[in-house]
């Protein structure tokens, strides 16, 4: 099956007063139709910028290079109008902070309806009908009344449901969800994750789920890509990641996952040290400063992302011999 999205040697960098920030470096990844891929990594590892870059949503000082092939078209070569035909329609994105991601002075209904009137040429009435349908599947109560309200009249969880509904009204082939549960409290997080589970069963859309929490990935994704300092360091089917993580960073992440026998607030930040400065990335392995297995080669030579088996890739010198 042809991939729905292929990132091919994608770089995202930002021009700042203190020099260039390399947020994403030489990143290649394919998403197959219908599959759910988790993108995991610490905060600042470039997860969001990878997909914002792919959707043409970078901040003014950012540039994306490489290729972003969506259903055969390289999005980075498209002009605004051509890109606008795709995003929101065949490719949609949900953001972490639903509280600030909805326009405060527009009624929720109008914000949903405009997606359909823009892409599908629906009349307002037809669009409203479809919006009601999708809102219902998002288990939003009192929909009719809700449509006339403003974002500040919604709870955090309800706003995130609206964001998801907004992304789904056009039945996209690819849904990118950037930390959809991070800003929510635990019970609401569970509800939203349940929605995603239902979504995965009932739609044919591929899902990219960005999260810093490996636990979120576990019950939901088919495949996981682990990012560190703007690169993918390991990619594997989800079961393999949990059963046999190969990269020392993935192993570290798994070790600091919360377990049921731990207190909720227990100290989890287990990998000591900090990720490298993105303005001045090391020549060798970006993880070397924090890696227990690091040797001189690690500090001098960057490990390539190599295939370990047909479904697995990792970037670590230690794995070369195997």
């Amino acid at each position: 099956m042809n991939p729905v999205l292929t990132l091919d040697h994608l770089n995202v960098s930002f021009a700042t007063n203190n020099g260039e920030v390399s947020a994403v470096s030489d990143l290649s990844l394919s998403i197959t139709p219908g599959e759910c891929v988790g993108i995991v990594g610490e905060s600042g590892s470039g997860k969001s910028q990878t997909f914002l870059g792919a959707m043409g949503l970078l901040a003014n000082n950012g540039t994306a290079t490489g290729r972003v092939v969506f259903q055969g078209q390289d999005l980075l070569t498209l002009d605004r109008a051509a890109l606008n035909k795709i995003r929101g329609d065949r490719m949609a994105m949900i953001f972490q902070d639903a509280g600030t991601s909805l326009t405060p002075h527009m009624r929720i209904g109008d914000q949903l309806i405009e997606v359909l009137t823009t892409h599908k040429g629906h009349s307002r009435q037809a669009a409203r009908q479809r919006v009601l349908e999708v809102m219902e599947s998002m288990r939003i109560p009192e929909i009719e009344k809700r449509l006339t309200q403003y974002p500040h009249e919604f709870s955090g969880g309800m706003r995130q449901r609206v964001m998801i509904a907004m992304a789904l009204v056009c039945e996209p082939d690819l849904l990118i969800a950037d930390e959809p549960t991070t800003a929510l409290d635990v019970t609401v997080q569970a509800q939203i994750l349940n929605l995603f589970r239902a979504l995965k069963r009932h739609t044919k859309s591929a899902i990219v789920l960005i999260t810093h929490d490996l636990g979120v990935v576990a019950g939901l994704c088919d495949r996981v890509a682990v990012m560190y300092a703007g690169r993918i360091v390991e990619e594997a089917p989800v079961a393999d990641i949990f059963a046999a993580p190969k990269h020392p960073y993935t192993q570290g992440l798994l070790k600091c996952m919360p377990r049921l026998d731990q207190l909720l607030d227990a100290e989890l930040d287990a990998i000591p040290g900090q990720p490298p400065n993105l303005q001045n990335l090391p020549n060798g392995c970006a993880f070397a400063e924090r890696c227990v297995n690091a040797n001189t080669r690690c500090h001098n030579e960057r490990p390539a992302l190599r295939e370990l088996s047909s479904a697995r890739r990792a970037a670590c010198h230690l794995l070369e011999a195997a």
């Binding site: 914002l52 959707m55 043409g56 949503l57 109008a81 890109l83 606008n84 035909k85 795709i86 995003r87 929101g88 329609d89 949609a92 994105m93 953001f95 902070d97 600030t100 991601s101 909805l102 326009t103 405060p104 405009e114 997606v115 823009t118 892409h119 964001m163 907004m166």
Partner: peptide, 13 residues
């Protein structure tokens, strides 16, 4: 603002 990013992500002109 984030909501402008959302509006652009929706493919609005």
């Amino acid at each position: 603002q984030n909501y402008i990013r959302t509006a652009r992500a929706k493919g609005l002109a």
